[in-house]
Design a protein around this nucleic acid. Structure first.
Length: 677
RNA sequence: GGCGAGGUAGCUCAGCUGGUUAGAGCGCAUGAUUCAUAAUCAUGAGGUCGGCGGUUCAAGCCCGCCUCUCGCUACCA
């Protein structure tokens, strides 16, 4: 392992179309912050980089919906995000944003270098173009009828009704969202990153060279590389983003995935003129803290970009976390299923560390985890209050009571005393071991063992009894208890910075370096302590119930929104309807299409003929159950090849609120070929 | 369907290159204790290590098949 002189830590850039929620925190910012604070306590040269990711189509759409400019949208969320991080105590050295000038310059420079050195390939393709507005249309700017479910306002990349991923050219009757006109296909030129060319190198560098990466990260990367990498467009036709720094490319910007990670570099530039030291010096260690959704970008794409550029360091590790669920359901910004950081900060003032603690203790390090308010309460009451807060309070109250808050002399040590003091260093070693391998959940548990040690020591030594017979002995016992307390301020500083500052206030101690952790004379005899207060307070049931109720309300609102039937489509003429030839037919054969999850191959007696139809209902019907059943079938739909089978028609289905499908059958048996009209 | 990650005590998770009676925290039970925010300390109950089969002197760890969860991907006329 290389000996590094300094560390550069990047944290995934949150997308500026919504506030920060606990999923972001647990996955990225809390662990990164713990690690950075730990290194800082060790006086290592470390910087932590963050910023808002402000480009991309979703932001332009949000702006359009709200009738404001994209800049307005990102200004709003950048402020909310930045403020909440700051209040929560995520200790970025710089929190920048990709709409900043320095970022535009940096991203342009890097693109330009790749362009000039022939690292990009140029390709011309056909894309939809809005002639009225004279611009190419991003996928999300095109609506049309979903070819699958017939929903009339499906987007060019996805149908919001049935969830299908689409490409714009699949839409029936595509319409530009900007002008309302039908767009035309037109040629456009773009640059691509030939990721396929980096495949051998990626294999060598990661699959051979970084076997120590977390299994979830390594596995995902291997999966991508083995699947074969494709060239990926680095530019697109859009007016929001970093303009392509090449002559004659008006209306083109860098694709957001290309410009966003460069944001780490621009933010570093914003922080220090010495930025190159952090990005290019071989003795700098680069770490990307991200969530699992970002693995491919940070392990494959961004490194390939940096490799192509040639002068930058590559990440030494990418400690990616899995996802955090909330009360059993996936966290979702659009469904408002989240605990929002800015709301938490308002509703739980002074409890920043409680959330940090809970998110760390239950961090999704190896698999998706679940955040529940009940667990939040239990961890606060049973661990922070009962173990940590209680120990500190016991030690301090006893010292006040017996010695007026002055640290008593340490006398002769018993074997238990020696063992207890020695345990402090053992705990330190455990915490370090866990932190060094990015096992924050375990590190926190190790750290809490120090408070457990204190509680056990007090229970064993019973100073409240000994005081009646041997005051000298009590002095030693409390001296040791206070040394443990002082050590706690170091040990838990990376995890609970606000609380440890408070605790240092109680014992009148300055912030100490990590190397002091383990020393047994941090508080000198005679040192005056302050009057202690409570370090943590219990959280009562009603507070938790209120939060749970808030989520239940959200759930209810979502269900209501879901259950609502979509509005009627525009009126059509009878002629339009009569073009469709819908018949009743009987299923005579049915089998699953091999290698698919949803497809059934059906043979239908339509009265006219017997024909083969492929239908995406395999998840809801057993093939055998369909045989002999009468169904409705659109017989004059143009045939289409699916998985090598020609599908000659479409089975009509009703879609339920949960997305499940139900075939539409006649009420009584009718002759095959009966027309539906 | 393909690929990846997981399935270990009620809950959340450890278990290194296979090796004695499978561990921790929380919860639970019993006891001790009262300095402390009814907190603490001790002891204990709780596991066919997803299922079946195999390799081995020996498997939670290796191999095969199956099954469930999550993610990526294909597919949905």
């Amino acid at each position: 392992m290389t000996d590094f002189k300094r560390t550069l830590i990047t944290t995934a850039l949150p997308y500026a179309n919504g506030p920060i929620h606990i999923g972001h925190l647990a996955g990225v910012y809390v662990p990164a912050d713990i690690y950075v604070r730990y290194l800082r306590l060790k006086n290592e040269d470390v910087i932590m980089i963050g910023g808002s990711d402000e480009h991309g189509v979703p932001i332009t759409l949000k702006a359009k919906n709200e009738g404001v400019t994209p800049q307005d949208v990102v200004d709003k969320f950048h402020k909310i995000i930045k403020d909440s991080f700051q209040k929560f105590g995520i200790s970025f050295d710089v929190y920048s944003r990709t709409s900043a000038k320095i970022h535009h310059e940096t991203a342009s420079e890097i693109f330009r270098k790749l362009y000039d050195t022939g690292k990009l390939i140029e390709k011309t393709t056909e894309q939809y173009f809005d002639e009225a507005n004279n611009q190419f249309l991003a996928d999300r700017y095109i609506t049309g009828t979903c070819p699958k479910c017939g929903f009339e306002r499906a987007y060019g990349d996805q149908c919001e009704s049935c969830g299908t991923a689409l490409s714009p050219t699949e839409l029936i009757n595509p319409v530009s969202m900007i002008s309302g006109n039908a767009p035309v296909l037109k040629e456009t030129k773009h640059w691509y990153m030939p990721l396929d060319q980096y495949e051998p190198w990626l294999r060598e560098w990661i699959l051979e060279g970084h076997k120590e990466w977390k299994p979830n990260v390594y596995g995902q990367v291997k999966s991508w590389i083995d699947g074969g990498l494709q060239p990926r467009a680095v530019t697109r036709d859009l007016d929001w983003g970093v303009p392509v720094p090449v002559e004659g490319t008006e209306g083109k910007v860098l694709y957001v995935w290309f410009d966003a990670p460069i944001g780490y570099i621009s933010a570093t530039k914003e922080l220090t003129p010495n930025w190159e030291l952090y990005w290019k010096d071989k003795e700098t260690r680069l770490l990307h803290f991200i969530g699992k959704d970002n693995i491919v970008f940070h392990c494959i794409i961004f490194p390939s970009m940096l490799k192509a550029e040639g002068t930058y360091n590559l990440p030494d590790n990418v400690p990616a976390n899995e996802f955090l669920n909330l009360e059993g359901d996936k966290i979702s910004t659009s469904r408002n299923w989240a605990v929002w950081l800015h709301e938490y900060l308002d509703e739980f003032p002074g409890k920043e560390d409680v959330l940090k603690y809970v998110l760390t203790a239950n961090a999704p390090e190896t698999k998706d985890n679940d955040f529940t308010w009940k667990d939040f309460q239990a961890r606060n009451n049973n661990e922070l209050v009962a173990i940590l807060g209680n120990f500190v309070n016991r030690a301090l109250v006893l010292t006040q009571k017996y010695f007026g808050g002055k640290v008593p002399e340490c006398g002769a040590l018993t074997d238990t005393d020696k063992e207890t003091l020695a345990s402090i260093s053992l705990i330190k070693a455990e915490v370090e071991k866990s932190l060094d391998s990015f096992r924050f959940r375990e590190a926190l548990k190790n750290a809490m063992d120090l408070a457990r040690l204190g509680n056990k020591y007090l229970a064993d030594e019973e100073p409240w009894k000994v005081i009646k017979t041997d005051e000298e002995r009590v002095k030693t016992i409390l001296n040791i208890s206070l040394q443990i307390t002082a050590n706690l301020t170091i040990c838990l500083e990376p995890f609970l910075p606000f609380s440890m500052e408070k605790l240092r206030g109680f014992i009148n101690l300055e912030k100490l370096d990590w190397e002091k952790f383990g020393e047994t004379n941090l508080l000198k005899a005679g040192h005056q302590l302050n009057t202690p207060e409570l370090l943590f307070e219990k959280i009562e049931d009603d507070v938790i119930e209120k939060q749970v109720q808030k989520l239940l309300d959200t759930k209810k609102a979502n269900e209501l929104a879901q259950a609502k039937a979509s509005p009627a489509k525009e009126n059509i003429e009878y002629d339009d309807f009569s073009k469709m030839d819908i018949r009743v037919g009987t299923v005579i054969e049915a089998e699953k299409v091999a290698k698919t999850k949803k497809l059934l191959k059906l043979k239908i007696d339509t009265g006219i003929d017997q024909r083969t139809v492929v239908s995406g209902i395999a998840e809801y019907y057993e093939p055998e159950a369909l045989i002999g059943k009468q169904v409705s079938i659109l017989v004059n739909l143009a045939p289409k090849n699916l998985k090598g089978i020609e599908s000659q028609g479409m089975i009509l289905c009703a879609e339920n609120a949960d997305g499940s499908l139900s075939v539409v059958s006649p009420d009584k048996i009718v002759k095959n070929g009966a027309e539906v009209k």
